[in-house]
Amino acid sequence: MSFYNFAYLDEQTKRMVRRALLKAVAVPGHQVPFGSREMPLPYGWGTGGIQVTASILGRNDVLKVIDQGADDTTNAVSIRRFFARTAGVATTTRTAEASVIQTRHRIPETALREGQIVVYQVPLPEPLSRLEPSRAAASEMHALGDYGLMHVKLYEDIARLGHVSISYDYPVMVNRRYLMAPSPIPAFDNPKLNRSPALHLFGAGREKRIYAVPPYTEVRSLDFEDHPFRLTRAPQSCALCGARTSYLDEIVTDDMGGRMFICSDTDYCAERREKDAAE
């Protein structure tokens, strides 16, 4: 890979991305436009996250990559290989050992600590996009802090269905100022962002936006006093490790309605089983 720079991107591009990241950290939840590059992986496969990771990775970093909570999903394997090949950094599946965790659709179950960075792959950075398709109009709403449209949407859900019908990519208010899309993590994961000791960086490659939640920032899932935000998970416990509080994947085991529920976070599940086996 000697034809390519460390971690694929050239240093000027990395510097440009890091400038966007610094601005994003300085204004939590605010979407910063950046000169997103074409990457050798397709848009939608995590080009934003990959550019962020490439720009912050150092030779001593330990990288973990997950998709749907798992280290062994095909896209996670592919991205981990990409950085192992282009940057030669150490990789791990252990959440606790990783200094940088790139993720698609989940936040690890294991509590994050200071110094860790979580990089999110973001398909649609604009939380208002389903309500206001024009990005020009949406950025004006952000500038004015005018989020009435979103509150009306939540209100209408409650009036019609009794609940907010958003189950993933559930909008959050960051630092009481910006409405932010937490990326398509299940709403179950939203509380993990609130006052998290880790740094959370969000990269949207196709939409060319970067945003961030710095450590210990208040992140509130949007709700109403009389209809507080509620977590949703399958009520079962994990069939492999017995966890009762982790987020579960539903596995269809036959065509007779057979189901099995297992942890979506494979590292968390494996660690619990190892501990059980040791005892």
Binding site: D67, G69, S167, Y168, D169, P184, P186, L248, S264
Partner: peptide, 9 residues
């Protein structure tokens, strides 16, 4: 790509 986490919710 897999979306089973979102679909589960």
């Amino acid at each position: 790509l897999p979306h089973y986490v979102d679909f589960q919710s």
